[in-house]
């Protein structure tokens, strides 16, 4: 017995696997000291991405079988992605404010965006799909 269709589950599982693998790769690079200017070295930032990745990947198998247990991990991963994506966006906004106050040399550029922001943007289609799947749920 499944909680939602296996076809939907497989689609969600593939997308979540991709997000999980990307998060894990970027997280490991951050933990190991970064790569150029695009991925900064950040031990705890990398740890957060690794936790996010494990959360996504932990639900892939059961989500592909159409089970709520799997979906819960993917929603947990999406939640973490959202929290940290928005956090880094706010931090970029704060950097912009620092520039306006004369405390920074330049406005933050798109290239300064942390990888977690890009992962957050990548996760939005999945979040939309999962949201439509769970609309009838209650808190």
């Amino acid at each position: 017995m499944t909680d939602f269709s296996i076809k939907t589950g497989k689609m969600i599982a593939i997308y979540a696997s991709a997000l999980g693998v990307i998060s894990l790769a970027v997280g490991l690079v951050e933990i190991l000291g970064g790569w150029g200017e695009s991925i900064p070295g950040d031990l705890f930032g990398g740890f957060v991405l690794a936790v996010m990745a494990v959360t996504y990947l932990g639900g892939v198998k059961r989500a592909s079988h159409g089970r709520h247990e799997g979906l819960s991990f993917i929603i947990g991963g999406l939640f973490l992605t959202g929290v940290f994506g928005v956090l880094y966006l706010l931090m970029m906004g704060a950097d912009g404010l620092m520039y306006l106050l004369g405390e920074a040399e330049a406005l933050p550029k798109l290239a300064d965006a942390r990888p977690a922001i890009w992962i957050f943007i990548l996760s939005l289609p999945l979040a939309y799909r999962v949201r439509s799947l769970t609309t009838r749920m209650t808190w």
Partner: peptide, 8 residues
Amino acid sequence: YTDILDHV
């Protein structure tokens, strides 16, 4: 949602 989130 509470069940789902608590699961993780």
